[in-house]
Design a protein around this nucleic acid. Sequence first.
DNA 1: ACCCACATGTAATGTGTTACATGATTTT
DNA 2: AAAATCATGTAACACATTACATGTGGGT
Lengths: 177, 177
Amino acid sequence: MSLRHAILVTLSDTEGTGYEITQRFTSGLGHFWQASHQQIYQELKRMAREKLVSARAVAQETRPTKKIHRITATGRKELKRWLSVPSKRQPTRNAFLIKLFAAHLIDRDHIITELEAQLAHHRDLLAHYGELEALHFPEPEKLPFKYRCMYLSLTRGIASESAGIQWCEDSLAVFRK
Amino acid sequence: MSLRHAILVTLSDTEGTGYEITQRFTSGLGHFWQASHQQIYQELKRMAREKLVSARAVAQETRPTKKIHRITATGRKELKRWLSVPSKRQPTRNAFLIKLFAAHLIDRDHIITELEAQLAHHRDLLAHYGELEALHFPEPEKLPFKYRCMYLSLTRGIASESAGIQWCEDSLAVFRK
DNA sequence: ACCCACATGTAATGTGTTACATGATTTT
DNA sequence: AAAATCATGTAACACATTACATGTGGGT
């Protein structure tokens, strides 16, 4: 049950509407924990019921009324508890690696095409992480602790994508020769 | 809907019971696509209904009757179809990276402990992959195409775990200093 | 005229996990 | 005596995806 904790993280220093939280997922956290607005709205409702967040409605002239959610003391306590206990690793799922177990049944070109698509995707993501790095963390050594931690999650993304790129290139060499 | 395709892969050259398929997942495929016996039994039932596999019951003296599943022509066709269309990448979920966004809220020791646990886990898996490599693929260059493909999935695992180890070590350095 | 951003939600379906249940045989 | 292996399953619940639904205002 990590979704609620991820939401608590997004609310830990700024309150926000379901919509805004969804955006925070899409831009930042979402690289490591995805959630759709449908999930987020449902979960926020439950969290409000359990007093982890408080919601207040704010009427607007032209836009529909929005609900601003703020983390409560209970929520903050639960967040800290969760931060302190090790979470188990999510096993990875990679359909393409399953395909490799039966790749001999089909034409090499299909494999090559898919590998190229994956390579492109890894490169796009890596480029994207590079931009985030340049934009938000130009001098990582000088960052205060808080941002230094956030930066580490970005370096993890960079490491994963780089490894992915290397592997795709090596594998393509096998299929192309 | 990849579970059924993963099952088709496990049946593509050897028939098997639900129990055996579960074991194949646990030992091989399972590193990249996990499934419990509950899921597998349910899915096999559906697949038999849809004629992707055929099931025949085999009575045994001491053990309960077992059901041996074999891929059908329809199943083989579906497998090939699936192999030929690119599958979308499963976004990764990593709760620890979410924690890093709020790591400043708790004691460093908690982070260090969790990082060490992750490092140990990466190392175990890497060692395990190393054993599989030594056992099944001692001379990768000389492998026939079919096994060369399977070997690639193993190299992907090795690459991921190695990248994970490197990142854990680098990150630990940040928290320890 | 059409799409995007804002802002909320419900409902149905699909997928995965946990718990429960049975029962003989073999190994420690 | 206890645990692991063989071999099957059901049921409840949790979590995720897809589709549907509404309505304004601003930009191309």
